[in-house]
Amino acid sequence: MSGESLLVRKIDWGTVLDHIPAWKADQVIKLLNLESLKQNPDVSVIVLHNVPSKKLGRKDIVKLYHYMVSEDEAEILALVLPQITINYIRDWKVEKHSPGLPEKIVGKIRCPETTCITNVEREPATPRYIVMKEHGVIACEYCDTLLEIERIPDFLVG
């Protein structure tokens, strides 16, 4: 019996985000569309921190009961946390999902350039980025500033 199953039971419908680096589950929550989560009264979010893992030693798990992560969300999760595995659960059946990489990211990430128009108070400018995976960066579509992919968690909104 694994450490996980000792802590929380399996779900019959929803998404299990596994192999999240230990104590990084909060980043996953920030990357999800929280408004969409909140609008659905049937959704439950179960967060497991620092459970034993053969692959990572210790890991976090996020179970989203009655919520299917969208393709856009899956792509951003895979970009920011490349170790993550995404499992869709339908009637207890597990379907592993391997998302592609996003070409663009809208919102979710604050531009690291303090003088960017998206950081100007009250301007209705939503940050938008082009993913330049080959250079390991995302580029702000407004101000051109580059942000290393591994630094994205430091700039998550929320």
Binding site: T115, I117, T118, A125, Y142, D144
Partner: peptide, 27 residues
């Protein structure tokens, strides 16, 4: 001309008429 980087692109999205960037911060 505006001190914010990205200001010209943002203005161009807001406006229906052409926008000419006369200096967008340090961009």
């Amino acid at each position: 001309r505006h001190p914010a980087r990205g200001s010209a692109r943002f203005a161009a999205e807001a406006a229906a008429v052409p926008v000419i960037n006369a200096g967008s911060g340090s961009q």
